[in-house]
């Protein structure tokens, strides 16, 4: 039975009930037969025979009702009603939210040729940004490196192809030892040793070792406390390893410092400035400006690999400027290996 038939029939029934068109007029049709059968039933639905509420009973009922109302005590409170326009808006928003969530969910494993792949890409980008923002917000303010001590890594890091080239960019962008020292909280000792420069690797070595043991990276030097923890742990070991070859020249020292960046940087500027924490600060600072801990690991690995490549090419003047480079090879390899290990570990 269609809705239209129901509508027509109920209208016809109403007309018949209220003295309109005679039912028999439509008796020859299917609907008319239906109508003929239903109108008498509708006509029989009457309250005519139902008794009325006696007046005294109604009055009693009224008294009882008012008594119950006064017993209940509280007057009816006007209820908040949603404005008419708000319901469809809220329903639409909810529907859009749910459908959006469904699309994002469906796009999770979308292959590149899929229609949903752009959604997948956008989702990943948003997730990355969200993660970065979350991490930066979760960091304690003290652990956030200052810009003064944070060179831009992307500009300063040598690309793999230019590893054997003169590490000038690195030198220009990494914080100067003084900055580094101030950032680390290492004081004049390391700075003084910086100024001494030179090849006093033994002394630097010892200093580096000592520093690596004694000093813990300060909050001001590190990008994150997590990094600090990881690198501080690694730094100690690396300082000892790098102290064997003992980076010597300034440039080498810088690399040595970076390679040992997490502690073994006794070779920086004659090793002195390469106190583990100072070197660590340089390395870490450069990481911190990039994009947080994860990217910084990559940066460190890149820097670490640089000295190892130097003996192979053997020609980069700045990188191999000092005799320490030759001596470094063992230590560098060692440190490189450890860095690799460390990277894998992460």
């Amino acid at each position: 039975m269609s809705r239209k038939t129901s509508e027509e029939l109920t209208q016809a029934i109403d007309r018949a009930l209220h003295g309109g068109r005679a039912v028999s007029d439509a008796a020859d049709t299917e609907a008319g037969k239906d109508l003929m059968a239903l109108v008498p039933i509708a006509q029989s639905l009457r309250l005519d025979g139902v008794e009325h509420l006696p007046e005294h009973r109604r009055e009693q009922g009224r008294q009882r009702l008012l008594a119950a109302i006064s017993q209940a005590g509280s007057a009816p409170k006007p209820h908040f009603t949603w404005p008419g326009w708000l319901r469809p808006t809220a329903a639409g928003s909810l529907a859009a939210l749910l459908s959006g969530a469904a699309v994002v969910y469906a796009a999770q494993d979308a292959p590149p040729e899929s229609v949903l792949y752009p959604v997948h890409q956008v989702t990943e980008q948003v997730a990355q940004v969200t993660q970065q923002v979350t991490e930066s917000l979760l960091l304690p303010p003290a652990a956030t490196p200052t810009t003064a001590a944070t060179p831009t890594t992307s500009a300063s890091l040598p690309s793999p192809s230019s590893r054997n080239a003169v590490p000038t960019p690195l030198q220009t962008t990494l914080p100067r030892p003084a900055e580094s020292a101030s950032a680390t909280g290492l004081s004049g000792e390391s700075r003084g040793r910086d100024s001494e420069g030179g090849d006093k690797s033994e002394r630097d070595e010892g200093f580096g070792r000592d520093q690596s043991r004694l000093s813990t990276p300060t909050a001001g030097t590190t990008a994150t406390s997590r990094q600090r923890d990881r690198e501080g742990d690694q730094g100690e070991g690396r300082s000892s390893s790098s102290s064997e070859p003992a980076g010597t020249g300034p440039s080498d020292g810088r690399f040595g410092g970076d390679s040992n960046g997490r502690g073994g940087d006794d070779g920086r500027r004659g090793g002195a400035a390469g106190s583990p924490s100072a070197a660590g600060s340089a390395g870490r600072s450069s990481q911190s400006t990039v994009n947080g801990p994860r990217l910084s690991v990559t940066a460190q690995a890149t820097i670490t690999a640089t000295p190892a490549a130097i003996p192979a090419s053997g020609a980069t003047p700045a990188a191999t400027a000092t005799s320490g480079s030759g001596r470094d090879s063992g230590g560098r390899n060692d440190s490189l290996r450890r860095d690799d290990d460390g990277q894998h570990g992460r």
Binding site: H52, R58, R62
Partner: peptide
Amino acid sequence: AQQGDAGAFGSIYDLFADRVYRHILY
């Protein structure tokens, strides 16, 4: 009645009690 006037609601009762009663009785 919506403002809490029980007397007004009593008048509403007077108006519709019989009709409601018969409907229920039916």
